[in-house]
Write a protein that binds this DNA or RNA. Structure first.
Lengths: 136, 136
DNA sequence: TATTGTTATACTCTATAACTATA
DNA sequence: TATAGTTATAGAGTATAACAATA
């Protein structure tokens, strides 16, 4: 196994652990991971359905259904945009914020994994990740 | 936003990009991500259904169905263990190996993202990830 | 009696195509 | 006519419970 292969495998393991932890956190609160993601996308403000589909990399019809389930539980709110009545803006309700905080709280990856790194190590990691994700 | 929050967000973005890239790679070859994962788990050798369920963090009945779809396409093979006939060992077929290689090939995250790092930077990253994932 | 895997069933995720309402 | 979103539908992922075969 070459060094490059070893790093590939490490990254796979890291992502695997991250995804598993997020899924557990969402389920602990009674949400699916997809529902938790949608809720998370709304914490920074209301979004049109189409914006959400682009952000979540899925079809608009999927957002409709995810939103319907969350709305049925009182976690999100749907409202027509006064400027363009075709547009529906989804927003998170106070109950939704509370559930979202519960997911964040149950998500233990940052504490149990990132928490092992020292301050300077985190600085290093931030630099490396920024380089990998930089646009272009 | 604190520095810790910023790193949390960066890691989220990294995992998001990784997952999206893997999903695209699997679909480009006509597989779902879950099917590609199962195939990947078999590349190091045959596995009992129960072992696979543990490895994939899902129920055994789920493995049964994933395996049935892959078997229907000739990508995996099911055989009863001679020593304990309750156990079914799943193995990858030559066609399955070929498809698995195609997924690996289409998975561009290592090339486009990890590929931006220099040799010493990869060494650094490997050390940091190892520290995060170390057992215990 | 305990264990391995499958089947039956139900719910969620997801996409495509057809549709409604608005622009 | 074009766009935003919904509805109908279908396939895939997933889990629970009941079951069959084997130990």
């Amino acid at each position: 196994m070459t060094a490059a292969d070893a790093l590939d495998q490490q990254l796979w393991d890291l992502v695997y652990a991250y995804d598993a932890a997020y899924d557990r956190a969402a389920r602990a609160v009674g949400l699916s991971a997809a529902q938790a993601c949608l809720l998370d996308a709304l914490t920074s403000g209301p979004r049109a359905m189409g914006e959400l589909a682009a952000e979540l990399l899925c079809d608009a019809s999927n957002v409709t259904q995810l939103a319907a389930r969350l709305e049925g539980r009182g976690l999100v709110d749907r409202a027509a945009d006064p400027a363009d009545r075709r547009v529906k803006r989804l927003s998170i309700t106070p109950a939704g914020r509370q559930v979202h905080r519960a997911v964040r709280s149950a998500f233990d990856f940052p504490a149990t994994r990132l928490g092992r790194l020292t301050g300077p190590e985190r600085q290093q990691l931030a630099g490396l990740v920024a380089k990998m994700l930089a646009p272009g």
